[in-house]
Design a binder for these strands. Structure first.
Lengths: 330, 330
DNA sequence: TTGTATGCGTTATCAG
DNA sequence: CTGATAACGCATACAA
């Protein structure tokens, strides 16, 4: 494999200096038409491609964004990754995908991204603790952004789906359908709050006079765990008919819940228990689920986040409204 | 935001030259204990982190691997991304996730990755045409690898799930269960062949005297399209009972198929028609599907691929065997 | 054990 | 409009 062709090679072939070569690639640069043509021809012939590494070193900007992802168990994360990476590349930015395992890895990941001189770090997901966010407070470290949850740390901007509107829409729909005894299935408490869904769910029901809403907490956003949690609840805490609709913090939980309701307890959805999810996963639309869900405007959210990345003084918070998709489960 | 602290700053504070600072960070280097301690202390105090960009420029190796992904519609891709990125980071490599839209983007993506001086390019997915693979033939361009499909281009190594063993296991299971009239649901023909699944499926059945296997081709690996295709087939080409088991090229297709079989045609799975998938998606295990599927050893595959990345003379092909997960759908 | 010079491929700035 | 010089932060080879 021959060594990479560099600017000097092109200069040599075109019979100009290497600085002239550089100019040929900068649009508004002052260079004679002939020189530019010569350079471009030579570059093309040699297959010259500018080395972005060297450019980054000189300009101190990499056009690289680290995307930290933890919860790979939720298929919806793929949609989010797609939306974000495409929004980034639309602006000429590239995504460094950094997988996270447990708590200890977080600091390392941020550090490593920092060393790679990324222009920004995006936290994609729900299971990030504040300690991770605090890392961006260190002077000199790249700015941090949070997508699809609310950051509870001051000064760290985020883009999320407007949970207040969402829950208002969901509850309005449920009330119209005649449901009166809601229950809520949440993820782990520490992370769940960053989504704000349960809070607004309760607020919305309160307006309709419903104050008591039982909660089923699930250890992580996982269908199997959701199934287990609901199974246990249905066997012990709840009697038949103690709630007529179960709203879940996301679609994965909802699917796990439906599985138990229908296949273990032989109950009908929505007749015995209605189920509502959140996110808008493709799978939720299958007849096997027919899951009513609140669709996050994930593409718009990703684009908004990228806009913020590019802004000098990004707004602290952005909440975009999604859309309720009513299906057979309610 | 203060400027980044560099080697020179540390050298100044520690009272040594900046080259001594460098040595302090290289394990086997010859340096006095005192000097090292001084440097490390100064570095720690200043919060010094080596600039990987500059290092890469000097060493001509970035420890960066571009991961090209196209088909975001298949949730299984998330598992693959997880497996690959974790396998990479276990070896100190980082993943540049490059999303691909249509045919024209491919060359650009390869080019861009090249300009970022990535050490390798990994194609993750099934919908890559040979023209993409050919791009790696250009001298000087980073080596290419294919994960989870077979490359049909010479000299491009790949790691895939052994389709021959897989189909043998599936067919053996089906024969034991008494199924006699199989049908096969494939993705788009041009991509489908790179998986080799249909081919070995037919071969395996041939050993049991079954030569005629109807095929249902789906335009892309998408549950909704699978549903449409099966619906059309069931209405026109096939009479009730013309096949007793439908084996699908992957789980997404299988789920779409089950949806139609059960919810539109009101047939029982597996009594009327059994269904088998491929991949081993988490969702397939839900009671709503209970899908029998062949689980790809995706983690092992990813690790093997990373090994190959690191080898001087990588083997051309690697096929790893997975495991059949029998559930209620067969 | 330590300091020095040179190069990696680019950009920015300045002279001509 | 063009050529030259310095700098980006680090690594490598070499000299002290």
């Amino acid at each position: 494999m021959s060594r990479k062709v560099t600017r000097t090679d092109v200069a040599l072939k075109a019979g100009v200096s290497k600085w002239t070569v550089a100019r040929a690639f900068v649009p508004g640069s002052s260079i004679s038409d002939k020189a530019r043509a010569d350079v471009l021809a030579a570059a093309d012939e040699l297959g010259y491609r500018p080395n972005l590494l060297a450019r980054s070193l000189a300009t101190k900007t990499t056009n690289l964004v680290a995307v930290l992802v933890d919860d790979f168990a939720n298929p919806y994360k793929l949609r989010a990754i797609e939306a974000l990476t495409k929004a980034l590349s639309a602006e000429g930015l590239s995504a460094l995908l950094v997988p996270i395992d447990d708590q200890t890895d977080h600091a390392d990941a941020v550090l490593h991204a920092d060393q790679r001189q990324v222009d920004a770090i995006v936290l994609l997901g729900t299971a990030f603790r504040n300690s991770t966010l605090e890392a961006s407070r260190k002077p000199g470290s790249p700015p941090m952004f949070v997508l699809a949850r609310e950051s509870t740390v001051d000064g760290i901007p985020y883009v999320s789906c407007d949970a207040k509107t969402a829950m208002h829409d969901i509850v309005t729909h449920l009330v119209a359908q005649g449901y009166q005894k809601p229950a809520f299935m949440s993820g782990p408490k520490t992370l769940s709050t960053a989504l704000g869904r349960q809070k607004y769910f309760r607020q919305s029901w309160a307006k309709h006079g419903v104050k008591e809403i039982p909660e089923i907490e699930v250890g992580s956003y996982d269908a199997r765990l959701a199934a287990e949690a609901l199974r246990a609840s249905l066997r012990t805490r709840f009697k038949q008919g103690s709630f007529d609709v179960l709203v879940c913090e996301n679609d994965v939980l909802a699917m796990g819940a439906m599985d138990v309701i229908r296949h273990e307890f032989r109950l009908k959805v929505p007749k015995d228990i209605a189920v509502v999810g959140f996110d808008g996963m493709d799978m939720a639309a299958l007849a096997s689920f027919g899951l009513t869900t609140y669709e996050q405007p994930i593409d718009a959210m990703a684009r908004r986040l990228v806009e913020m990345l590019l802004e000098e003084e990004p707004a602290r918070a952005n909440k975009l409204v999604g859309q309720l998709r009513v299906r057979s489960s309610s």
